[in-house]
């Protein structure tokens, strides 16, 4: 083990870690917005909205994220006739991907709320959407915190796939250092440990969050 090399590489790797966190946070946030919308659409009364949500979820969950990244970065520009920068491409692919999984999380969360809650709301004259917003969703949000935490952790690791389009997050940074130094052992170990550390921190944070909502 060349510890000198590791010390020299650390600043670069930390920079890459920041980028990984950034893309994960943005992707999961946008993914949550898409997922919340699609999750509600999947169980709403409008057939056309249900179909749209089903097609979206099936297509995204039925294809690999890696292929989705290629499509957004290489194929999409051919359609829209303009280049897409690496960061937006990475964010778009990851967000759309995350959205499909989050949609299923929200759908399950909403459906886990007793049907009597919706009936009580409707019987008071609230509309379907009002009941959803004020009664069902606030209860569902609490229940989806653990699976959303899992989704965040999964995206943290899956974001390494955007290294294939040359986007310099943690994995790509590692690759680049190795291509100069040939220090596979040292750098991949470092990269793995950094991912592990991030995941453990996020897992602890989610557990805390879960506890906080539980007591109320």
């Amino acid at each position: 083990m060349d510890f000198d090399l590791i010390t020299h590489s650390i600043p670069l790797l930390i920079q890459g870690t920041g980028v990984t966190l950034e893309i994960t946070a943005v992707a999961v946030f946008i993914g949550m917005c898409i997922g919340c919308l699609m999750g509600i659409m999947r169980i709403c009364n409008w057939k056309i909205l249900r179909i749209i949500a089903n097609v979206y979820i099936d297509c995204i969950r039925g294809t690999p994220l890696l292929v989705q990244i290629f499509i957004v970065y290489f194929a999409l520009p051919a359609i829209i006739g303009a280049r897409i920068e690496k960061f937006p491409a990475a964010v778009i692919a990851c967000s759309i991907n995350s959205g499909a999984y989050v949609a299923e999380i929200f759908r399950a969360g909403i459906q886990s709320i007793d049907a009597g809650q919706m009936e009580a709301g409707r019987s008071l004259g609230l509309t379907w959407w009002q009941t959803m917003r004020f009664i069902v969703l606030p209860q569902a949000f609490k229940r989806v915190i653990p699976p959303l935490g899992n989704e965040f952790i999964a995206m943290l690791k899956d974001s390494s796939l955007v290294s294939v389009i040359g986007f310099e997050e943690l994995t790509r940074t590692g690759q680049l250092i190795i291509s100069r130094t040939y220090a596979s052992l040292e750098i991949w170990t470092c990269v793995a440990l950094i991912y592990l550390f991030m995941v453990l921190v996020v897992a602890r944070f989610v557990a805390k969050l879960e506890k906080r909502f539980e007591t109320k």
Partner: peptide, 14 residues
């Protein structure tokens, strides 16, 4: 519905 209130077996409070 707002004119016809309903009380449920399982209360269904929020």
């Amino acid at each position: 519905r707002r004119e016809v209130g309903m009380v449920f077996q399982k209360f269904n409070l929020f």
